[in-house]
C-alpha cells in the first residue's frame, strides 16, 4: 500500500506537468460547463426560428460604440429582405449586457425555472445578438451549439459505457480462462474487427434503423471488440505474475482472482482507451449525423448541423464552420487527455 501511495503522485505529476494535457482537461472542463449550464449560457432557445433573420453572418449589426458614442458592445436590429440581402437599422442601438433577463427556461430537469441568461440584448425581444450568426431558419447558432453539447457528451459516454461494460468482462474472461473459450471468443472478436472503422456502426444503423439512440448503441457495439482485445492482452500479461500466484496459493480460485487481483492491475489501458474512444465516438456519431443516419432535425446535433450548413456553404459558410470547430475542439480535448494518460500510466517510463 505504501508503495502505491508513493507512486500515485508520480503519475499525477507526469499528467499535470504536461502542457498539452492541461489544454485537453481545460477543453473538456469547458465542454462539461456548456453541457451543465446550457440554458443559462445560451442566450436563446435552440429551436426558436425567425425567418426574418436567416443566415445572418456573425458580427452583423454589431458595433462597439453606443448611440452617444460610449464604448461597449451594441447591436442594431437586423432583417433579411425578401429579395435577399440584409439590412441593418443603424440608428437603433441596444447594449449587450451580462446577466440579462430573456425567455424563461427550465433547468435541472424542470426543478429550477428562470429567465436569467449569461448575456443578451438589453432591448426589445426582436433585437437579438447572434454571437456566431444564425442558420437557415434564423436560429441562433451559438445557442444551438451550446444546447447540442450534451448530445455529443451522451453519445461518448453511452458508447464508452457499452464498450467497457461488455468488452471488458468479455475480454477479461476470455484471457483468464484461455483454452477453447478464448479461441471461440477471439474468433468472434475477429469477426467484428473485420469491419473497418465506422462501417460496423453504419451496418448496425442500417439494420436497426437510424436515429440518435441507435447511433449511440451502434458506436458502442463497434467499440466492444477493441476493448475485448485490449483487456485480454492485459489480463494475459498479468495473470501469471507472482501476486496472482500468491492469491492462488492462498486458496483463492476462479472469478474472485480475476476481479480482485488480475483486472484491477490490467485496467490502465482501458482508462487510456476510454478517453480516446470518447473522441472516436463523437467523431463517428457526428459522421453518422452528417450522413443523415443519426440525429433528426430539429435536434441540435453538431454533425447534423454541419450537414444542413453544407447546403448553404457558398452563401453562409459560418453555418457549417462553427459546428465543425466545436467537434474538432472536443475531440481534440479527449485525444490530448488520452495521449497524456497513456504517457503518464505507461509503466515503462
Amino acid at each position: 500500500m505504501t508503495d502505491r501511495q508513493k507512486r500515485a503522485p508520480r503519475w499525477r505529476r507526469r499528467l499535470f506537468g504536461n502542457g498539452l494535457a492541461i489544454v485537453g482537461f481545460a477543453i473538456i472542463g469547458f465542454f462539461l460547463l456548456f453541457v451543465t449550464f446550457a440554458p443559462f449560457l445560451a442566450p436563446y432557445s435552440p429551436t426558436h426560428q425567425s425567418l426574418r433573420t436567416t443566415y445572418v453572418p456573425p458580427g452583423t449589426g454589431v458595433t462597439y460604440r453606443g448611440p452617444d458614442g460610449e464604448l461597449g458592445l451594441f447591436v442594431s436590429p437586423v432583417t433579411r429582405s425578401p429579395v435577399g440581402g440584409i439590412s441593418v437599422t443603424e440608428d437603433e442601438k441596444y447594449p449587450v449586457r451580462l446577466f440579462v433577463r430573456g425567455a424563461e427556461y427550465e433547468w435541472a430537469f424542470g426543478l429550477i425555472r428562470s429567465d436569467l441568461r449569461l448575456f443578451g440584448v438589453d432591448g426589445p425581444p426582436n433585437v437579438r445578438f447572434h454571437l456566431l450568426g444564425t442558420d437557415e431558419q434564423g436560429r441562433d447558432l451559438f445557442s444551438r451549439l451550446v444546447h447540442g453539447a450534451w448530445i455529443s457528451l451522451f453519445i461518448g459516454l453511452i458508447s464508452v459505457g457499452i464498450g467497457v461494460g461488455v468488452g471488458v468482462p468479455f475480454g477479461a474472461i476470455s484471457g483468464f480462462l484461455g483454452g477453447a473459450t478464448d479461441m471461440i471468443a477471439q474468433r468472434l472478436v475477429d469477426m467484428l474487427l473485420a469491419f473497418p472503422g465506422i462501417l460496423l456502426a453504419i451496418v448496425l444503423v442500417a439494420t436497426f434503423g437510424t436515429g440518435l439512440t441507435n447511433v449511440m448503441i451502434a458506436v458502442g457495439i463497434a467499440s466492444i471488440p477493441i476493448y475485448a482485445r485490449l483487456v485480454r492482452g492485459s489480463v494475459l500479461s498479468v495473470k501469471n505474475r507472482e501476486y496472482v500466484e500468491a492469491a492462488r496459493a492462498m486458496g483463492k480460485r476462479g472469478m474472485p482472482i480475476l476481479f480482485r487481483h488480475v483486472l484491477p492491475n490490467a485496467i490502465a489501458p482501458v482508462i487510456v482507451q476510454s478517453s480516446l474512444q470518447m473522441a472516436v465516438a463523437i467523431l463517428f456519431a457526428a459522421g453518422l449525423g452528417f450522413l443523415g443516419l443519426g440525429a433528426r432535425p430539429p435536434q441540435p446535433e453538431w454533425g447534423l448541423m454541419l450537414a444542413r450548413g453544407r447546403e448553404y456553404l457558398a452563401v453562409a459558410p459560418h453555418v457549417a464552420t462553427f459546428p465543425g470547430l466545436a467537434i474538432v475542439a472536443v475531440v481534440l480535448g479527449f485525444n490530448l487527455v488520452g495521449d497524456a494518460l497513456r504517457d503518464a500510466l505507461d509503466p515503462r517510463r
Binding site: A279, L283, A286, G287, F290, G303, L306, G309, R310, L313, A314, P317, A320, T321, P323, G324, I327, V328, V331, L332, N335, L336, D339
Partner: peptide, 22 residues
C-alpha cells in the same frame, strides 16, 4: 498530427471546397 486525427473529414472537405473550389 493531433489535429488531423481530431478533425471530422467531412468538415475538412467542406472547408476545402469552400476555399479552394468556391
Amino acid at each position: 498530427a493531433l489535429l488531423g486525427v481530431s478533425m471530422p473529414v467531412f468538415w475538412f472537405g467542406l472547408l476545402a471546397i469552400l476555399y479552394f473550389s468556391v
